[in-house]
């Protein structure tokens, strides 16, 4: 049991607006990543329409240097968001125990969703970084190369794990931004929860579809080469 609260914040602060700025940055990086992820999924899933479309889109982004410049920016955003959000993540064993005990006792959806965000964040940090590293070191992006990568080694399983983790984190994160900044009110919260769930399902379907298409393409291609 914790003792009574102390008066930490009442001391003159060197940077009285530090916490506010960090909170803004956490929100902004988060919002950027959410938007990026939705765009990213839409772009990649263009392969569902046809590899040519995806290649065209990828070519456009590379020709305009949006990938070469945007990639590192997103990567920085990604790391910054992790560091900012990590301020609130319990890292010590004791705090972890408090968090898990609390969530188990309370049986409260939004509290559990935060635990989900916390856990997925750890996996996304590692797996997302690997994914970005690999993709950005293997430009240009084409449907064929992506398909080949997905189908090689354990990469299909890698993406089958990363995809739901990322989508969960993104949709929960979007909902959380809405709640924290008051865009989601008591009145429209039930609706926001439904939207959050819908977004997750839609992007999962698209994502899984895209992975299966890549895998199929790779099989067809390698069969073609094998002849």
């Amino acid at each position: 049991m914790a003792g009574t609260a102390t008066m930490l914040y009442a001391h003159p602060q060197a940077h009285p607006r530090r916490d506010a700025c960090l909170d803004w940055l956490q929100m902004i990086t988060g919002a950027c990543l959410v938007i990026f992820m939705w765009c990213h999924m839409l772009l990649v899933s263009s392969v569902l329409v046809g590899p040519a479309l995806m290649d065209a889109i990828a070519w456009f982004f590379e020709a305009t240097y949006l990938v070469q410049a945007g990639g590192p920016v997103i990567f920085v955003c990604f790391l910054a968001h992790f560091i900012l959000a990590a301020r609130k993540i319990p890292f010590t064993a004791g705090d972890q125990e408090i968090a898990w005990t609390h969530a188990r006792m309370l049986r409260h959806r939004d509290t559990w969703l935060w635990m989900v965000q916390m856990v997925t964040a750890m996996f996304i940090l590692v797996m997302g970084a690997i994914h970005m590293w690999v993709v950005l070191n293997d430009l240009p992006i084409t449907a064929e190369r992506s398909a080949a990568r997905v189908a090689s080694g354990g990469w299909l399983w890698f993406y089958f794990i990363l995809l739901p983790l990322a989508e969960l984190h993104v949709s929960v994160g979007a909902y959380r931004i809405g709640v924290k900044w008051g865009f989601i009110s008591r009145q429209n919260r039930p609706k926001a929860k439904r939207i959050e769930l819908c977004m997750f399902v839609v992007f999962m379907v698209i994502g899984v579809g895209t992975l299966l298409v890549f895998n199929h393409m790779a099989t067809v291609l390698s069969a073609g080469r094998g002849v």
Binding site: D19, A20, T111, W114
Partner: peptide, 9 residues
């Protein structure tokens, strides 16, 4: 207010 994580419990 900036410590609030929006868990809404």
């Amino acid at each position: 207010i900036f410590g609030c994580m929006g868990l809404l419990a």
